[in-house]
Design a protein around this nucleic acid. Sequence first.
RNA 1: GCGGGGAUGGCGAAACUGGUAGACGCAAGGGACUUAAAAUCCCUUGGGGGUAACCCCAUCCGGGUUCGAGUCCCGGUCCCCGCACCA
Length: 833
Amino acid sequence: MTVNTASARPESPYPPYDPLAVERKWQARWIERGTNHVDVRAAKRPYYQLMMFPYPSAEGLHVGNLYAFTGNDIHGRWHRMQGYDVLEPFGYDAFGIHSENFALKQGIHPGTLIPRNIANFRRQVDRAGLMIDWRHQVDTTDPAYYKWTQWVFTTLFKRGLVYRKGGAVNWCPNDKTVLANEQVEGGKCERCGAVVEQRVMEQWYFKISDYSEQLLKDLDEIDWSDSTKIAQRNWIGKSEGARITFRVLDPLGAAGMAAVSVTSEMSSSEYAIPVFTTRPDTIYGATFLVVAPEHPLLDAITTDEERASVRAYQERAKKQDLVTRKTSKEKTGAFTGAYAANPATGKPIPIWTADYVLMEYGTGAIMAVPGHDQRDFDFAKQYGLPIERVVAASGDTARTPLTSAYEDNENGTLVNSEQFSGLSVAVAKKRIVEALAPVHAEAKANYRLHDWCVSRQRYWGPPIPMVHCAKCGPQPVPDDQLPVLLPHIDDFKPDDSGVSPLARHKDWYETKCPKCGADARRETDVSDTFLDSAWYFLRYPSVPDQSAPFDAALTKKWLPVDSYIGGNEHAVLHLLYCRFVTRVLHEAGLISFWSPFKRFRAHGLIIREGAKMSKSKGNVVNPDEYFDTTGADAFRTYLMFIGPFEEGGDFRDSGISGVRRFLDRLWASVQVATKNGEPDRDVMRKLHQTIKKVSEDIPRLSYNTAIAMMMEYINVLRRGERAPHRAEVEPLVQLVAPFAPHVAEELWELLGYTKSIFDSGWPAYDARLVAAETIELVVQINGKTRGSVTVAPDVSQDDAFAAARAHATVGKFITGEPKKLILVRGRLLNVVL
RNA sequence: GCGGGGAUGGCGAAACUGGUAGACGCAAGGGACUUAAAAUCCCUUGGGGGUAACCCCAUCCGGGUUCGAGUCCCGGUCCCCGCACCA
C-alpha cells in the first residue's frame, strides 16, 4: 500500500497529524495528571537537570533560550526514561538593569512589567513542552526568594568576606549608574552610548580574590566544558613572579641614600615602593620606576618642582574613563622628580607616573625594563629614558642594539648583569630573587581576579541588607528581620546624585541600629544581579519551604546539580560566582559539597541564515510563530538537528520542513502499523542499531546525529510497500519522545498504552542483532580504494584476500604476489604490492 | 598582542581511538499521482572523462609521518568568539 500522511484527503484511512491539536491535548493532560511532578522528598534516584534561568524580557522567549532549554529538556527526559526522578526546574532572573531600563522607557513600573513578562514566558515554556515541575519555581524579585539572597550577603559579611571601599568606577552619566568594565565599549556605555566618566565611590565588595588560588585549583577537579574552564583560568589570570621593593632616595638623587623628608604621619620610615614583576631576571635593565597616577605615595614623593605637572597629569588621568585608558596605546606620563635605588645595582633611577600602570593590578607600580618590555620601551623612547639590554638572544651580544623590546621569556641569556650574566632566563629568575631576598624581593604570584563589587546605585534589585550606625559602624540586618523589602516607589528613575533612588525615601531608610538601637540608616544601594543567580540552584529543590534558604535533607539528596547546561556568555562571571558562593557556604559548614555542578556543558550559539540575530536586523526568530505553524515538536527537533548542540548552528526556515516530514512519516507509520505476521529481520537490525546509536548520542549531547539516525531508520522502515509491524515502530516512538514529547505521547496512547511514555522506560538493544551477518569489506590496493567484497564479519585475512582476487573489478589490480596484507576487522583489506 | 574555536558539495552538516569522504536534511532537476497546483511517493544530484564496465581529481594552502590522513606532526592563510597597557 501507499502511505499518505498529512493530507486531509477524505479517503485517508487515519486522521492527519495535527501538531497543534496534539500539543494542546498533551500539555493539558500533563498538568491534569501531574506528569511533570517529582516528589522531591520521596525520590529514589534523584537527578537534578538544570538550565540557566532567563531574564524575562518583554520580547518573550528568545530562540537562543529555547535552544538551550530544549537541549536540556531532552537530556532530562532521557534520564527520566532511564528510571531517574528528574527535577527540571524553571525560574526567572528578573532583577537588574535590563528590566529597569525597559520599565523606564515604557513608563511602567518594573513591579508591574515583570509579572506580565513572566506570565508570557511561562506560556511559551509550556508551549515548548518542557518537562517543568512548576511547583519548584524561583523568581529573584519575589521577597520569598531575595530574603535568602540577602541572607547570603549577611552570611558572607559575618565571615569577613564583605567590605566597603572607595574606588574609581565607571560612571554612566545617562543611566546614572556604575558600570562594570565589561559594560563599557570604546569609552561609551554599551547600553545607551553615553561617554563614560570616572568617579570615586564607596562600594561594597566581596573578597573573591582571597579565593583566587582555590578557585583556580578547583578547576582541575570538575567536569565542565574545556572552553569554560579555560575562560575561567584566564579570568583568574595567575602570573608567577616576584615582589621587589625599591627604596625612594633623596629628591636630588645624587645626594645619596638619605631618606626623603616626610609628612607627619609617615615620618619615621623611608618611602619604599614595592613592584610586581614576572621578570625579576631583568632587574639590571630596570632604568626607571613608574607608579600609577592614583598611587598613594605619589603625592608624598613628588618634589616641589614637579608637583604642578604631576597634579595636572593626575587630573587628566581622572577625566578619562577606565576603559579608554586601558586600551589606548599612546604613552603619556610625568616625572616626579624623585629617584629610587635599584636594589640590584644600588644606582638611582628616576620615578615617573604614567597611566599605563594600573593601580588595580599588582602593587600599582612597576620597575620599567625598556629593553625587555615593549610598553616600557615605548615610554622610554617617548621621554628619552635609557634603554639597556640585559638578555641576549642567541646571536646577540651584550652590545647588540635594541630596536624594540626583546620580550622572549624562555630563551636567552643574561648579559650586563654582573655575576648573573651568562645565566639562562629561567635560572636567573630564581637566583636574582634569592639574592635580593628577604629584604628586597620575594617570589610571589599575582592574580588578575578583582574583588567583586556588588553595589548598584539603582532601584530594581534586592536592597543590600546592611544598616549604617554612627556608633557601631555598618551592621548586617539580623536574619529574623529579613527580607529587607524593596519598597514600591514611583520615582525609581536614577539621578545624578550617585546614590540609589531609595536614598530619596527617608521613611524607608530611617531605621534603628540592630546592635545598639540608636537611629541609623539603611544601606540604599541594591545588590548586583549576579548575586541573585549565584545561589539559585541551591533554592529550587526546597521551594516553597520558607524556614531556610535550602532544606538540609533536600539539599543532601539533590545537590550538587547533576547536569547544568548554559551559554558560554556566562563562562566567567556567573559560573565563577556560583563556585565562589558554594565554596564559602561549604567552608561555613552549611553544605557538604564545594562544587555546585557535577557536570557543566556549554551549548553553542544559534545564528540565522548565516547572520547573528538582532532586533535591529529584524531577523529574530519568534518561537510562537513556529509553535503555531509547524508545531513545538518539529521546532524542537529542528533546533537540535541543525548542528552539534555544543557548537550551535545556522537556523534556516527551509530546514524545518525536513523534521516535520520526519514526524509526518512517523505518524503515518504508527497509524498503519500491524500486529500481523513477523517483524522484518533487516528492519529489526536497523532498529537495534538505531536504539544503540540514539542511546549513545543523547548523553553526549550529540542530538543532531541521533536525529539523523532515526531518520535513516524511518527510511528503511518505509521501504517497499508493506505495513510496518508494531514491534518495528514502538521503540522508535520511545526514541523520539525526548525530542518530540507531545507526538510521542499521542502515538504511545494510540499503541494502547495508558501511562505516560516517559514512564515506559527506555528500549534496550540486542547486541547480537546489531551485528550484521555479512559485511562489505573495502579493498584497497596500495592504499587506494578499488572496491569492496561481501564477506563474513570475522573473515580471515587469507579468505578476504582470496575474495578480493576473485572479484571482477578489484582482482585485476592484483598483479603479483602481495608484499603485505593489512586487514582491519570489519573495515578493509589493504593489499600492498 | 594573548587565549579559545573553526575552514569538508549550491546550503546546514556526517565521518567512533587514522580505515569506502559527503550519512541525515535542505535546495535544485526529472518522473508518478492530479483537470491543475499544493501535499505525497519514486529517481538524480562534489568536479571532470568515458557508449559502457570503469578511470582521474577532490576535505583552506604547502610540506611530513603512515600500507592508508578530513583526522596525526611542522609551517602558512583566512574567519568567528573571548580577553586585552595585567607588568
